[in-house]
Nucleic acid binder design. Structure first.
Lengths: 185, 185
DNA sequence: GTCTATACTTGGATAGAC
DNA sequence: GTCTATCCAAGTATAGAC
């Protein structure tokens, strides 16, 4: 990995851990093992670095979701696989956490990939639910758009609860709760 | 309201909007219309101000929830009232947002009221669900602890989705989704 | 209690040498 | 491409006058 990539990767880590306002250029340089001049040679500054970093994390998140959702099985099985997959719960969601950052939401170009990622994720989950509805696994009248938003919200909110408690249990409980309702059909 | 209270109140507003790492003593002073010396006379610094501010917001959140949950009606009706109540969705949750702040979670004394608030909220919702289960409104086998976590997670995650989209719709969808499942019993 | 002055650190970036 | 020097604003706090 070259210096440029290391800088982006370090930015991703720090954005995940400390957010945009909490991440300084100096911290990025130290994490990447790069000097001041090196960073400003490759990037115009913190913002440009963040743009690349956020985009990469966004792509990765959607790819990871797709890996669970495209497996064989019923709609509920695939959603279960997605919700139950191994996660670093206490670190939170690298994309969702950015929504709490004033430096991100105030900047349309930085917010855009965050918005797009969560919107696409909901759309993809709605597709899976649609398939379940089509096969009769799920009831015909189900509002799949709403339920897809609920599923993503349970994840994002589960992270919030786990971080507050400094323990993963509330996350697991929230997931169990929604799955018990979904498997009741 | 005296100067001391104004400082706490300003801190609450700024913590809500910008988080702990994003809020400077100077910003607090300006928002409160108080001078430097005044602030440091009443408080040892930003951290002490935050301790008081977070505690007040926590108390207020629990009181607001209780206002909806103690109304007459079935369990699902009361939870519906709670979820559907008027909210400043795009501002997010003044307590939940703090879980994304490294300055809060890294400090046990600052994290404690956040943890306690969300834990109590889940416990209170579980009580309401227990009552519904006792009256036969909800099924006997229901895991009320898990479902309470789900309900709070939908709220917290709904805020995340709404802030990402810069629009309240995803929040409303997430709430609709969980309520449609709850009213299916 | 509040004000102003002062101090030191960090944030964020530019300039020019190598 | 990377390094060091430099710069100015902001963050966070202390000191002492009023």
């Amino acid at each position: 990995m070259d210096t440029r990539d290391q800088l982006i990767d370090s930015t991703r880590e720090l954005l995940w851990e400390r957010g945009y306002v909490g991440t300084s250029p100096k911290a990025i340089q130290q994490h990447a093992g790069a000097g001041q001049g090196s960073m400003y040679h490759h990037f115009s500054g913190k913002r440009e670095l963040a743009l690349e970093a956020v985009q990469r994390s966004a792509d990765e998140l959607l790819a990871a979701a797709e890996a669970q959702l495209r497996t064989p099985g019923t709609a509920v099985e695939r959603i279960t696989a997605y919700l139950r997959r191994e996660r670093e719960v206490l670190r939170g969601c690298p994309i969702g956490r950015l929504t709490q950052d004033p430096g991100i939401v105030a900047d349309p170009e930085l917010r855009a990939p965050v918005d797009e990622t969560l919107t696409r994720l909901r759309a993809r989950l709605a597709e899976v639910l649609d398939e379940g509805r089509a096969t009769g696994e799920l009831p015909a009248g189900l509002d799949t758009t709403a339920l897809a938003a609920t599923v993503v919200a349970v994840l994002q909110g589960g992270y919030v609860l786990a971080r507050a408690a400094n323990a993963p249990e509330p996350f697991d409980q929230a997931v169990s709760g929604i799955l018990s309702l979904l498997t009741a059909f």
